[in-house]
Design a protein around this nucleic acid. Structure first.
Lengths: 236, 236
DNA sequence: TATAATCTTAACGAATGCTTAACGCTTATG
DNA sequence: CATAAGCGTTAAGCATTCGTTAAGATTATA
């Protein structure tokens, strides 16, 4: 960082889209770096240590998933994946490999900026709030989760959650603002060797929502990301 | 402690990582000691009595879990475990054996410091609670526990509890509002090396409830968290 | 030592939670 | 606009866990 701003690395081979993203970020006071293929991206990440990486999955020289895998061997820099709508699967795999968020083309200015801000905030949570999170609480609107007491409250009233329900909501809240894929949640709760679809997860989520949401059809706390997973609202 | 600072013992065989941790702690005003294997660590803990121990699980001469077990036979010094392993099992085992917290490599400066601060704070909590416990009382609705007199009253009337029954209710009331797992309660009452299921605990709880609850089927003081443990109602 | 109190173990019914399957609704996609 | 896929919801069967009782084992006490 040459000044007080965040630095972002944009990895994109299509010139038009690259320019579009760079323009948005530059206009919003980011220090922007560019890479046009995978190997260039890897070098720049290690040499320039950007605060956030915007990564297109469809690069000419390397598979986007390999890039994420390699980057994650040495740094936890937030990665926001950009994917075409036709490659839904890739998006999910990228998240499972350690990407922080995703944007589907075409996307607007505010969406890109929001995702980047969220990703940057995740790093702050990891660093500064580690001890708060450990012994602490999660608060979002009228929802409160006390990890120490294993207690969930809505509007000050106790809400009884079963074992699995609590595990799910705890996992989501500890990753608030981030999409967790069905597979990730499933394996986190039922163990890495568990096999099965996400039907069970849907039932549990329905039960959770009935208990914590005022209107399950328009949730305020846990959002569904179609085809991908669930995302908990940012804490406040 | 040669001055007013906390002393930390870093137990790590890999020189690079050891230097990294030592640098972080030294820069943040800790008095740092070092050990490079398990036996050395055990000696230094007993001789120097550090305020906190940062322990790598992958030491050359001893299994990290054995070290925790041995240390816990004579001191409750907080132990923060450092491990490259990402498996949940190791984490759970280490924590169950008495470790206070867990960091997975790679980790950042602020994360390490946060964990250490949290671990140190736990000790303070333990101390403060001890004072309160000895001079204090627990009150919740019509239930009163006098820790000095070792006396339990319901609606002003004395209730006779057996040794184990009192230990259980005292432990729960001292952690009122928090779920204590069956395993934790069991090990707290019968000792860390006790083995057996929670059948005994269920019988004791039935007896306790018969004595203190008006309606055991709808308890007011001790609640069951299915598959997890028991929770005592908040004091008032 | 005798007696009472307490602890432990085992068995079983009851309550709770988990999972599966079916179905309707919403959302993507051509 | 039609079709297909994904998600939410419900209810029923199944598995697990808990509470309770009673009997035997152990410990305390006179």
């Amino acid at each position: 960082m040459s000044n007080n701003h965040f630095s972002a690395l944009v990895v994109e081979d299509e010139t038009n889209i690259a320019n579009y993203i760079v323009a948005i970020l530059t206009a919003n006071k980011y220090d922007v770096l560019q890479a046009h293929d995978g190997s260039q991206a890897l070098m720049m990440i290690s040499s320039h240590c950007p605060d956030v990486v915007i990564l297109d999955l469809g690069l000419p020289d390397m598979d986007g998933q390999n890039i994420i895998k390699l980057v994650r061997t040495w740094t936890q820099v937030p990665i926001v994946v950009v994917s075409a709508r036709t490659h839904e699967r890739d998006k999910v795999m990228a998240l499972d490999l350690g990407a922080d968020d995703y944007i589907t083309k075409p996307f607007g200015t505010s969406e890109l900026l929001a995702r980047v801000r969220t990703a940057l905030r995740h790093v702050n949570m990891r660093d500064v709030n580690t001890d708060i999170r450990q012994a602490g609480m999660f608060t979002c609107g009228d929802l409160t989760i006390d990890y120490d007491k294993r207690q969930v409250c809505v509007c000050g009233a106790d809400v009884h959650l079963t074992q699995n329900e609590y595990k799910i909501i705890a996992l989501l809240s500890q990753n608030a603002g981030r999409v967790l894929t069905y597979d990730y949640i499933f394996k986190s709760i039922w163990g890495p060797s568990a096999n099965g679809d996400n039907q069970v997860l849907r039932v549990h989520m329905a039960n959770i929502r009935r208990k914590i949401e005022q209107n399950a059809a328009a949730p305020r706390y846990v959002f569904t990301e179609m085809g991908v997973g669930y995302r908990m609202a940012q804490s406040d």
